[in-house]
């Protein structure tokens, strides 16, 4: 009987994912209303709930894909994967204003470059503080502080050790999770309430998942503006980190 039930769920994995997300959302909005009187937005609670579930799933399954490593929830991996995420992000652009994008285009582009460099320096400085003195390790961990894609791309281009590459992925993951959770709480403090600041925010943060989650929990109307710049960040990071930025590290730190 149970086997039959599980078999049905496994055969309809994407449909199970719809149900899963619906239930998580419903419970989260309930918790938002009852426990915080709506102060913490329901979608913020739902995203945090998703992350907490992913934590425990990772602990019990030993896998890398959160709840998607539980066989009956494999569809969550499809629904929450890059393909559907990008599809939905593009759809949010339908309501975006071209003029707002044009007006902030320059400062948005600037924020991408500045975001990559800033994260790289911070990550590299932390690596140095923890005793990583060679330029390759410093640059790889710095690149990981940009995003968890820039880290390994840089690390493999420079020939970093697998331990350092794993650290760079860890730094990127921390960043993405923290941006998802933190954004709705800091948004009022940093003036994240208009298209221009959303573009700057997307460019500075750069993690597409983090920005997508953070803005969803803050104000979904800002999603297209933040996503627009964030989506260029990883590319710019992969361009700058193993080349110009690595050479700069090497110039000041010849080991």
């Amino acid at each position: 009987m149970l086997e039959l039930f599980v078999a049905v769920l496994e055969r309809h994995s994407l449909i199970v994912a719809f149900l899963f997300v619906g239930v998580v959302t419903w419970l989260s909005y309930l918790a938002s209303n009852v426990m915080t009187k709506g102060r913490v937005h329901g979608s913020a609670v739902a995203i945090i709930a998703g992350l907490v579930l992913a934590y425990f799933a990772g602990m019990f399954t030993g896998g890398q894909r959160g709840v998607a490593d539980i066989s009956i929830l494999a569809g969550v991996g499809v629904l929450g994967g890059a393909m559907f995420r990008d599809f939905a992000i593009v759809a949010t652009a339908f309501g975006a204003e071209l003029d707002a994008l044009k007006r902030s285009g320059l400062v948005g582009a600037l924020s991408i470059v500045l975001g990559v460099v800033l994260s790289f320096i911070v990550g590299g400085a932390v690596a140095l503080a923890f005793g990583y003195t060679d330029s390759v390790s410093i640059s790889t961990i710095g690149a990981g502080a940009a995003t968890y894609i820039v880290g390994p791309v840089t690390g493999s281009a420079l020939g970093a050790s697998s331990e350092v590459i794993a650290l760079s992925v860890g730094a990127g993951l921390i960043k993405s999770v923290l941006v998802m959770i933190g954004t709705p709480f800091v948004a009022p403090l940093i003036g994240l309430n208009n298209p221009q600041s959303a573009m700057i925010y997307g460019g500075l943060m750069g993690t597409t998942s983090g920005v997508a989650g953070g803005l969803a929990a803050t104000d979904p109307k800002l999603v297209p503006y933040g996503a627009m710049t964030a989506t260029f960040y990883t590319g710019v990071g992969c361009l700058l980190a193993p080349s110009v930025l690595f050479l700069l590290v090497q110039a000041v730190n010849p080991t």
């Binding site: 979608s43 739902a46 995203i47 959160g66 998607a68 929450g80 559907f84 339908f94 921390i174 979904p220």
Partner: peptide
């Protein structure tokens, strides 16, 4: 699909490698 954005993001959160991050 624009309205499905938040549900998709919730699914995305649930499939992150949070354990490895922490």
């Amino acid at each position: 699909w624009s309205a499905m954005y938040i549900p998709i993001v919730i699914a995305m959160a649930a499939k992150q490698n949070v354990y490895a991050a922490v």
